[in-house]
Write a protein that binds this DNA or RNA. Structure first.
Lengths: 218, 218
DNA sequence: CCAGCAGAGATTGTCGACAATATCGCACAC
DNA sequence: GTGTGCGATATTGTCGACAATCTCTGCTGG
């Protein structure tokens, strides 16, 4: 979505990318005020550029803008994170089903290999590597599904969850549960069974919702 | 999403609302160029306001903006309309399932009454009234589902489909098919059967996809 | 006759300054 | 001591002008 190759300054792009990065990395605390003037000086662009970038990010649901009162980092309550993940559930289900229909032999082989790597990462107790492979798997499935609209919506939704995903990643025992679910999704796609793939994907995200709810009290 | 109560001028709001209206009513042809200066003069606001509004609408997927080359009304090909509707399918399914869980007796009675009205509209051959009731039904279900994220995403997706929905509404024989599907959704919710409601909602939107594909050649 | 190039016009991107609005602290009245 | 109104400050919204970029037209050369 965000074009990458930039040669000229393109103030608004600089500001938007910098902000997006800061948000994705969690450098900015949720609820923190985003003062146009400060950001402009910080990133070396004009206020107009920062302004445009903020409007842009507001559209992506990353920042909240109140008229005449400025912008702040949008804070997503656990409750809303659950709602977002519910939507992810059905959309990832859609992608899994489509992937089961569209996958080539090569792609299935690649997914299966990825599943093996996932298993190895869990066995070796490498949660960080597992997390990376996890993302890779989801991305791969969505690529195979070739559903640009669903992909775009999922990107938007995921971007709003960075903070919660972070908290989720370090829950002990989670990888073991997650692994089984992931393998089920891969199996569904590999056997070209759209309904099984969709059901597995939904079951997986449903378990994420359950875990999310538990972080509420934890 | 768009705040409604406005008293002052608030240039950007004026511009954004005016543009949104024009797009929703189909006054602007798809692909038409949107020149900032012209729009500014047309709506009596400054170019900066128009600019902000255009960035806003770009985020909503209504306008396409190419750096240094300006904005134009986004044209959604039938192919993309199908992709959008696929996403609608699973999201409306989610809402229907949630509605089946959450509906109160009063809400079910209200839905049933709406179903009767729909049947009457078809029997009387009033496609316009049917279309209105149709929208009302979908809105009502989403209200009951109380899933703000899904609602927001659906609003965005629907806004991108105005042109295609228009073409779809006047297909002869469509109301008869559509009515049965709608009644099935209502029945699923009324019997508080989430799976039936979801299946019915998905079947309904799936038939919309089918109809959409046929307009491609028609 | 067609390809390539240069210039003019149009349009977007950027900038700095000004106006409008909200927030906060303080004095004052009760 | 508490609540209310006023003024100072900070921040956003708006404006007009300038710079950068793109598009289109017409000309030149092969």
């Amino acid at each position: 979505m965000a074009d990458s190759q930039v040669e000229g300054a393109a103030g608004v792009r600089v500001a938007a990318d910098a902000l997006r990065d800061s948000l994705a990395r969690g450098d900015l605390a949720p609820g923190q005020r985003l003062v146009e003037g400060d950001l402009a000086e910080m990133y070396g662009v004009t206020r107009a550029s920062v302004r445009a970038a903020l409007i842009d990010l507001t559209g992506e649901g990353l920042v909240e803008r109140i008229p005449n009162r400025g912008a702040r980092v949008r804070v997503v309550a656990v409750e809303e994170a659950v709602a977002i993940t519910e939507c992810r559930m059905v959309l990832e289900g859609l992608c899994a089903a489509r992937a089961a229909r569209a996958a080539t032999d090569d792609e299935i082989a690649s997914l299966t290999a990825l599943g093996d790597q996932l298993g190895a990462a869990v066995a070796d107790g490498e949660p960080l590597k597992y997390s990376d492979l996890n993302r890779e798997l989801h991305r791969r499935i969505r690529d195979i599904a070739a559903q640009p609209v669903a992909n775009q919506v999922l990107d938007r939704l995921n971007a709003q969850l960075v903070r919660h995903q972070f908290r989720l990643a370090l829950r002990p025992g989670r990888p073991q549960v997650s692994l089984r679910e992931h393998l089920a999704i891969i199996a569904g796609i590999a056997s070209r069974d759209p309904e099984a793939a969709e059901a597995a994907a939904r079951a997986h995200v449903a378990s994420v919702i359950e875990a999310l709810r538990q972080t509420d009290t934890a």
